[in-house]
Design a protein around this nucleic acid. Structure first.
Lengths: 227, 227
DNA sequence: ATCGCAGTTTGCGCTTACTCAATATTCTCA
DNA sequence: TGAGAATATTGAGTAAGCGCAAACTGCGAT
């Protein structure tokens, strides 16, 4: 089955390639469909492949030795992920989980070097993604070290909204289901505290949530809560 | 003034170079001496150079919008740092401060591409450094999100000891002066809490500290305190 | 030698956010 | 349609660690 080269159009790492090269890149790829809740790869596995998320949303998480879960980040469609080998790692440092149904392009790690050499702009864009993630990790560390739970939760929801939001009639909706538990694992808190905060914010018409779906009604006031 | 090419011997990024290439690399460098407490570069400055620490110890820190300091990491001699451009950044994301007198090699950022292309093994080793830092940041996030102050402080001291320790008669000494305040900025706590912890550990003969100098007497028990 | 300052110690009260517990709501699927 | 599972809410009690305050120590500069 041939993949349509337009798939790679508008994706930064392949933006500067011509049609022939794009076809070549696709011919080297395997496509994977991953159902919600299933993992793409797991923490500690050999980093045999690198990935590009075509469609869907990925959650990246780690377990500490006591078995507590910490969510590192969420990946929006169009981004490279699972590129451990770019940083000289040979195992995946975290687990990648589909939170919605995902379409993923997958290449063997051995091709990384080839891509870097052969395709103009690929390495630059790939390392930009890394740079952004490092920068976000830095911000996260700062927040965890200096801010209160309320501010961190507000920031987490704001980020989900900005990176994965989709407009709806009543406000911006986060594009995938999010539980209180998940937010607590993103912020280093407990689901109880998150629930209390969201209840309060719902009374104040800052957010609205039904079951696992969260809408941000008032971005401005949420932003204010972050400091 | 000519620099001695043996300076670069045993430094991973340049390990695979021959003597001529090493000389070339050195000819392109400027050497800087930075006194304790002085900064090498500051958060937000244009990333005009990348650096290699020949001797001394560097502290990397950021300020949050409220002006609170957070210490990101300490750099031991022999490592690359300030390599923002490797990740597509054009400003330094943090401030680098000499904690002891430092000798630093400095190259203009424009040479990064050249080094990556021309010198075998340079890029691999450089990205390995990045990989290690990312991995440490991840661990830090996990600790901040799930562990108590006591465990984080124990871990921080253990890390300082392992990465910057030097054997002494009574135990392993951390190679540069460290205040309670600094430890609190590394762990997201307060100098008061750190002081209480260190007092207790001193009574239990786990650590010993005089003024700003810390000795680890019992690594095993300190390790136990981290979980 | 001593003054000043940076660093440290320790006590006390208070707040944040956790744990434990019970109950309520909503979804899923047979 | 109803049972069970997953998710959410809310209350009560508690503890970790912060903020404030006061006093102490030791280093370095003049």
């Amino acid at each position: 089955m041939k993949l349509d080269p337009s798939l790679l159009q508008n994706l930064p790492p392949f933006e500067r390639l011509n049609a022939a090269d794009r076809q070549e890149v696709l011919d080297l790829a395997r496509i994977r469909r991953v159902l919600p809740g299933k993992s793409v790869f797991e923490e500690g596995m050999d980093a045999t492949h690198f990935h590009l998320l075509l469609d869907g949303h990925i959650r990246v998480e780690r377990l500490n030795p006591e078995g507590e879960k910490v969510i590192s980040l969420h990946i929006p469609p169009g981004q490279l992920f699972g590129i451990a080998r770019a940083l000289g790692r040979d195992i995946y440092p975290a687990t990648a989980l589909a939170v919605t149904e995902c379409l993923i392009l997958v290449w063997p790690t051995a091709l990384w070097e080839t891509f870097v050499e052969r395709y103009d702009g690929f390495s630059t864009e790939a390392y930009k993604v890394v740079g952004n993630r490092v920068s976000e990790m830095n911000n996260r560390i700062m927040e965890l070290a200096t801010q209160h739970v309320e501010q961190r939760v507000a920031r987490a929801i704001l980020r989900l909204m900005q990176q994965h939001g989709r407009d709806s009639e009543i406000g911006t909706q986060i594009a995938f289901p999010v539980t209180r538990k998940v937010i607590s694992e993103m912020t280093g808190s407990t689901l109880h505290t998150v629930s209390r905060l969201l209840s309060r914010w719902e009374r104040q018409r800052i957010v609205q949530s039904q079951h696992r779906h969260i809408f941000v009604l008032d971005e401005g006031r949420l932003e204010k809560l972050t400091h």
